Deep mutational scan, measured.
Amino acid sequence: MSIQHFRVALIPFFAAFCLPVFAHPETLVKVKDAEDQLGARVGYIELDLNSGKILESFRPEERFPMMSTFKVLLCGAVLSRVDAGQEQLGRRIHYSQNDLVEYSPVTEKHLTDGMTVRELCSAAITMSDNTAANLLLTTIGGPKELTAFLHNMGDHVTRLDRWEPELNEAIPNDERDTTMPAAMATTLRKLLTGELLTLASRQQLIDWMEADKVAGPLLRSALPAGWFIADKSGAGERGSRGIIAALGPDGKPSRIVVIYTTGSQATMDERNRQIAEIGASLIKHW
């Protein structure tokens, strides 16, 4: 067993022997301040990774656009098919120029040779490549099948209805392509620590998230040296922004954090800054 596999296998073990965790309302004060600064709703939840206990939450059962955070769930569904012998990570998928959609920095470079399922998941999570996500959605049967996968996990809230990039439209009061912070946090925890996926697939999923290259201005910008984070960000229309993450000190994750916002007129930089400040408060009061 590799060191990384050992780390993920012992996530519940280490967490069980940690000192009790206590909620700190100071972080919620910052979440509410972010709402004021952005002029928009902000949803927040913080779960203990081992027990699933909610440590703090704000608007945990209000719907927010998922945006690209759905790509972690998508690759979880792909990995479940791999575990069941219905898919192979090494299978190569070929596609054409007509398949390319807006923001496809990886797939646009491989029109000639195609990409493997493993490479597509890596591109979808680490670079948020939209064509990679659409190609992977095709392998599982489309958005409705991802929703069905989530329902089978016990998540009857999260739903995907459309493809990239239309799913980022974020129309107010439109339930399409949305989740709730509580539902997303619980589902992410199941994917990373539950028995739904094999140990190898859980490790692969967290490795992809740990290698995320496009979430630097968010929670990662607030992390002290030595902290662990595996995350996936999302951005959408109407001032929408979000991030889902597993993080913790001492090089291992111990909490799940989900943050979503929508309806702001603020710039992307300002949305990023507010999420980073929430992260800084979380870490300060850990």
Rank of each mutant, 00 (worst) to 15 (best):
G39A: 14
A124E: 01
L100G: 03
N130C: 05
F13L: 13
G279K: 00
T112P: 14
W286D: 02
Q204I: 10
S281L: 12
A16D: 03
R59D: 02
A200H: 15
L150C: 12
T198I: 06
G76Q: 01
K232F: 00
I93T: 05
K32I: 11
K53I: 14
T158Y: 01
G239I: 01
A123K: 02
A276E: 09
R159I: 06
G76W: 05
G226T: 12
A15H: 08
I3Q: 11
T179R: 00
E62N: 08
M67I: 07
E195C: 08
K232T: 01
N98P: 09
A235H: 02
F17D: 03
V8G: 08
L146K: 00
E46F: 09
A84V: 13
E62L: 07
E270T: 14
D269H: 13
G248S: 03
R41P: 10
H151D: 09
E35S: 05
S281P: 03
V72G: 03
G90W: 11
L247S: 02
P172A: 14
N134A: 04
F228N: 06
A230I: 07
A170S: 13
I243C: 08
A124R: 00
I256Q: 01
H156P: 11
L205F: 05
E175P: 15
R255C: 03
G251K: 14
S80N: 12
R241D: 02
G242K: 00
M127E: 13
M66P: 01
H110P: 03
L55N: 08
P249S: 08
L150N: 05
L192F: 12
N134C: 04
A9C: 11
V117P: 04
P12L: 11
A40H: 04
L79H: 01
V257K: 00
V31Y: 01
P20G: 05
P60F: 10
T107Q: 01
N130Y: 05
T147M: 07
G279S: 10
L146D: 00
F22N: 10
N50T: 14
N173C: 14
G141Q: 07
M127A: 08
I275T: 03
A211C: 13
P12S: 12
R273L: 12
R255T: 05
T107R: 01
A222T: 14
D207S: 15
A132L: 00
I283P: 02
V78N: 02
G85D: 10
Q97P: 14
I140K: 03
G234D: 00
D129G: 00
T179Q: 00
F149D: 06
P165S: 07
D129C: 01
G90N: 13
M127P: 01
V21E: 05
A84E: 12
D36I: 14
V82L: 06
F14E: 02
F6A: 07
T178I: 04
L89C: 05
D48L: 04
L135Q: 07
R273Y: 12
K30R: 11
I45P: 00
V101N: 07
T158M: 03
I278G: 00
W286S: 01
D231V: 04
V117M: 10
I244W: 00
M67R: 01
P105S: 05
D113K: 12
L79Q: 03
A225Y: 13
I275Y: 05
P143M: 04
D174I: 03
L282H: 02
A222S: 14
G216I: 06
Q97M: 15
E26G: 12
F70I: 06
I259F: 07
G85W: 06
